[in-house]
Amino acid sequence: MASEREKLEKYISDAKLGPVSRRKLLKAFDADNPSPGHGAPNPNRTPVKML
């Protein structure tokens, strides 16, 4: 079964997009990026330590 990333890559490859946009979007998969952007799908549920 394809991973989410593979599915999205294929989708972008097949989508109606100009070649420049497609190239940039595909390149973004391997972006060497220090920031996770708006990518906080789940809150940090790690509990605090108790006494």
Partner: peptide, 13 residues
Amino acid sequence: VYFYHPARLSPKL
């Protein structure tokens, strides 16, 4: 699951 990619912001996609 939640690897980040800006395309996930796209309503069109």
